[in-house]
Design a protein around this nucleic acid. Sequence first.
DNA 1: TTGAAAGCGCTAACAG
DNA 2: CTGTTAGCGCTTTCAA
Lengths: 339, 339
Amino acid sequence: MREPRKAPTMADVARVAGVSAMTVSRALKSTSSVNPDTRKAILEAAEAIGYVLDGTASSFRLQRSGFVAATIPSIDNANFAATVGALTEGLKAAGLEVLLGATNYDLAEEERLIEQFLRRRPEAIVVTGGSHTDRARRMLEQAAIPLVETWDLPAEPIGHVVGFSNAAAIRTMVDHFADAGYRDIAFIGGEAARDSRGHDRRQGFVEAMTARGLDAGRLIDAGPPPISVREGALAMRALIERGLGAQAVICVSDLAAFGALTECQRQGLAVPRDVAIGGFGAYEIAAYSVPTLTTIDARAAEIGAEAARLVTGLLDGRIERTERLRIEVPYRLLIGQSS
Amino acid sequence: MREPRKAPTMADVARVAGVSAMTVSRALKSTSSVNPDTRKAILEAAEAIGYVLDGTASSFRLQRSGFVAATIPSIDNANFAATVGALTEGLKAAGLEVLLGATNYDLAEEERLIEQFLRRRPEAIVVTGGSHTDRARRMLEQAAIPLVETWDLPAEPIGHVVGFSNAAAIRTMVDHFADAGYRDIAFIGGEAARDSRGHDRRQGFVEAMTARGLDAGRLIDAGPPPISVREGALAMRALIERGLGAQAVICVSDLAAFGALTECQRQGLAVPRDVAIGGFGAYEIAAYSVPTLTTIDARAAEIGAEAARLVTGLLDGRIERTERLRIEVPYRLLIGQSS
DNA sequence: TTGAAAGCGCTAACAG
DNA sequence: CTGTTAGCGCTTTCAA
């Protein structure tokens, strides 16, 4: 196949076009003034020898990488994918690219990723959540670049925040169920330690139940994240096997809720007649399952878009870098047929 | 918040530690020999002033970016996410990072992405599918770096290939349905132009039906990709409204199949009694929907892992760069309750 | 084991 | 409009 020959440089283009490297550089930038004929000759020469601008050299010289680093717990997640998609889109106009990494819900892995990313000299960094290892926090602080923490409202943010209260969102859902007359409500969620958003949601459940004088003790642990359909189904089965004892089940995500729903169907329980179900995340499946699922729309894309606005604003000076901003993206309760 | 001060360089560390920059460089590499005391002092100095190695300068000097560029049609897709996850994992040991971009099923966008990525001087590039614009093909050829085309077996590959025949996979599924006695089978898929894998699947459907002397005319267009639950449901509704006339429906993906399934449920059709359904991709939902879905497992993670093996092998010389490799990852038919 | 010099490819700044 | 010079931060090479 292809020979691993050396890539041509501006000097090569310059030689072919009979100009200096500097003129080539200018010709490739549409903003600088170059004689039209000269530019034409240069572009043709570049095309002829297959020249592609060396962005590594360029960004090194400019001391601007053009990268914004972003970490999410998992790539395979419609919510985070939507956030990243909107972030990428929002940064495009500013000529910024997203360097994406998945932590797999592991703070140690997040720390490794952050260290690796900081070596690439990103111009800003967008992370999911406000929980980080001490070393990660220190690295982020020392990096002295705009930092945005998303999908959460951390008690002690390191940088700017674009998110919402996961606890409040679940409280809203509990209120919805309680107002509808449900008293015995269970919560299917995951291990507290590895997923702060999941933890906050469980916290919100306990708070809301307690505030209403209801039993907040029906907590089913669905194991470590990612908590998906399978985990929801298994947790529901465990709940049914121990005698259910709940008229409603709130799940940490729609995928788990869908798993719980299908488990009910397999076990011959009617939803919502025998059990009502609530999810989280407004995944597409919530709108198409039979019955549709009551859920919380966390506005994943808006979170990414806001983060992009924040980053570009901070980088071009439209936003002061001195104050720590906190942008709350309002979640929405979507009532489905499952409750 | 943080002052946008200038990041410390090796020279700064050297000054603090009382050595030369070169010694700092060596001290940070575990492979070079440096006096243990000197190294200790240097690492402390680095820690003290918050020094982080400038990877952009390093890779510029070394003329090695440490990047492998990868393009996928969409981030929000469990199959491509699995491929990228395995690719990332497989490249980690070689010190390579993945620069990920989504084309949104748009060849023009893919061309833009490839151009952008090539500027970053990736050491290899992994793309999804074998359809590219002419300019993209030219750029990929001229880049003279290892190229892997995945998820397909292109008739005219530009580089190495790790994939499977989407047409053959669907033929296998058609055979399964036909062997089970189904004669009138419909296919729900998308616009041919934008998604070559979807196009090949439809092609496979037509071939297999024709080969068996069955009517290959029941093709329902679900519109442009991404074809998800909603599109599957709408297509199924359209099919039902025009009188169904099929005992089985094969969908271009499990998400569409799930949409079709739920539409049947909404319309009071029993699956598989009234209609059988087949999907594609072995998404988690196929294993948990009620009934479970018959599907094709394309082994998304294996594709990514094989691509990583290929890339690392080509880069470190274990694999000859001269021959065009074609690695076929065998798909599997998974029979569910829906057929 | 440590240091000095050179240069990777590009572009800002200045000069013509 | 075009050219020359210098240098971004690092590591290879050569020397001590």
